[in-house]
Design a protein around this nucleic acid. Structure first.
Lengths: 85, 85
DNA sequence: AGCAATTTGTTCGTATGTATT
DNA sequence: CAATACATACGAACAAATTGC
């Protein structure tokens, strides 16, 4: 069961962003802790690094994650209130 | 003051080539030095990467620039004599 | 102090699909 | 139809900072 569907109308990077957003909201990624590395996430979703990074950009805009250069990407703590819309 | 006019009769990539050619000839880009990255130039001119690269192709044909893969695009040193026409 | 591995940052090469001119 | 343009995506290579030994 691939985690993204290349044939879906939604772009892969958006599908990935949605998946990760849901997981973070569900608590699968603990606030304050580090997310998987870009490399690991690329392998998990079967996409190129650019695509994965594009997805992370979305989450960063949501205020759900932040990245420390050469260290990793972390889940914010505490999580921001979900934005309506 | 956008640097290119999408409504002009000239294609955007040609307008960009002309602008950069003029700047290089005027010495705004020092011979031997690196030009801005494709990304930065895309943002400056507000065009897609393909369009920007098409403009760089023109300058490359003019012998004004050369590109080192994964490093950047540089202004030739010395500049070639302007070709008549 | 030194060194290699890890990880993110950057940059160009290429290809595809869609829309516009 | 052909050329151009945009957005996305994959690939490759290199840079730079961090980490662990």
């Amino acid at each position: 069961m691939p985690e993204i569907d290349p044939d879906a109308p939604e772009w892969p990077y958006r599908q990935i962003a949605t998946t990760l957003r849901t997981e973070i909201r569900a608590g699968l990624w603990e606030p304050g802790k580090r997310l998987s590395t870009e490399k690991a996430l690329c392998e998990r979703f079967g996409v190129a690094r650019e695509t994965l990074r594009r997805a992370l950009d979305c989450l960063r805009e949501d205020g759900l994650i932040f990245t420390i250069p050469h260290r990793g990407t972390y889940v914010v703590d505490p999580l921001p209130a979900p934005t309506p819309e």
